[in-house]
């Protein structure tokens, strides 16, 4: 009798009692799943670490390493904590069960297991895991990996906090005339190619693109996950973007296609970062002087005819060997004081 309402999954049964192992694994196999077993906590944890499972059934009461310890080890491991764990225990071990569920176990089952209950709990856990995996995938498509992980870890809430980070704005020069001169589908294709290259350069340098408007993009370095070298990485990303674009343009020229030139502005400092919007539609963004400044500096690339400009605070955070061209103080709209601007190249 094979009755399974979910897709076949790979399960691990950890129990020191042979009869329990046999009953559980056989029941689960009858439901269409593939089952691996482990005789104690150590062996179980080793298998969890070295193989991939959709669900673990874990006995609480075991000699040496208890189920509680195995659960704790899994929950403290970033790679393992996504695996749902169902605790199996005798009816009277209710205190231990409560402890495990409070710690983060997915569910529990009393032994001897009732086959109907086993099927229901296992299917529910697998279904929940499938939804979580899908949600994770979706988050990764529409948000950066960092933002997705933070959302999954802390849950979603509007509201901000102070962060120190670097902000980058990048824009395509005279994109309007490019768009007007060619077929709309060619324009979209060009934009997709362009964004693909830019995203790679930014992601490789620990940045995250958090906004795209038309042909422009805004990227953050050091938020939501803070790292000390955010200024260095932002500049590295900028230079890499210019180099990759150069290669892209050579290819475009060879095919007689449109070439792209961009301006990049980077500014750093303290800002407020968080989710803005409504409960149903929100984006992670940053607000603050440095954000406005980065946008102004980006525009300034058209004035001084250099593709990558940074503010002085970003410059003081550089550790790499770059050529810096001092453009001296410049006045920007909304700024009381003149700001020192530098062009960066290799």
């Amino acid at each position: 009798m094979v009755t399974s309402s979910t897709h076949p999954a790979r399960l691990l049964v950890i129990d020191d009692n042979k009869v329990n192992r046999m009953v559980l694994s056989r029941n689960l196999e009858q439901l269409g799943h593939t089952v691996e077993t482990a005789e104690d906590g150590d062996e179980g944890l080793e298998k969890i670490r070295t193989q991939s499972f959709d669900l673990v059934l874990l006995d609480i009461e075991m000699p040496r390493m208890s189920g509680y310890q195995v659960l704790e080890a899994c929950l403290n491991d970033v790679d393992l904590r996504q695996i749902p764990i169902i605790m199996t225990s005798a009816m009277e071990e209710i205190d231990a069960v409560v402890k495990c569920v409070e710690l983060g176990a997915e569910d529990y089952l009393n032994k001897p297991v009732n086959p109907v209950m086993l099927r229901a709990r296992v299917n529910a856990s697998l279904e929940k895991k499938r939804l979580r995996d899908e949600q994770r995938k979706l988050f990764r498509t529409f948000a950066t990996t960092e933002v997705a992980e933070e959302l999954l870890r802390t849950g979603f809430s509007l509201g901000g906090k102070h962060v120190t980070a670097s902000v980058m704005f990048a824009d395509i020069r005279s994109f309007t005339s490019i768009a007007e001169s060619q077929d709309p589908s060619d324009t979209i294709e060009l934009l997709n190619d362009y964004f693909g290259i830019m995203f790679d350069c930014i992601t490789e340098n620990k940045g995250s693109v958090n906004q795209m408007v038309g042909d422009g993009l805004m990227a953050l370095f050091g938020a939501p996950m803070y790292f000390e070298e955010h200024r260095e990485y932002a500049v590295r990303a900028g230079l890499q973007m210019l180099e990759q674009l150069k290669i892209f343009n050579i290819k475009q020229a060879a095919q007689n296609k449109t070439q792209i030139h961009i301006g990049i502005g980077i500014a750093s400092g303290e800002m407020i970062a968080g989710y803005t919007g409504t409960q149903t539609r929100a984006i992670y963004t940053c607000i603050g002087d440095a954000v406005n400044l980065a946008a102004r500096i980006e525009s300034h690339t058209k004035v001084v005819l250099r593709p990558l400009l940074i503010d002085n605070y970003t410059r003081t955070g550089l550790t790499g060997d770059y050529r810096l061209e001092d453009f001296g103080p410049a006045m920007f709209k909304g700024k009381q004081q003149a700001i020192n601007i530098f062009a960066v190249s290799r």
Binding site: M1, R26, N27
Partner: peptide, 25 residues
Amino acid sequence: STFNDLKESTGADFIGELVDAFLDD
């Protein structure tokens, strides 16, 4: 009733093996 549920959910061909495991243990 418990025994038959066990037999059904683990498969009739398996119950002998299961009983033996218990009787050995």
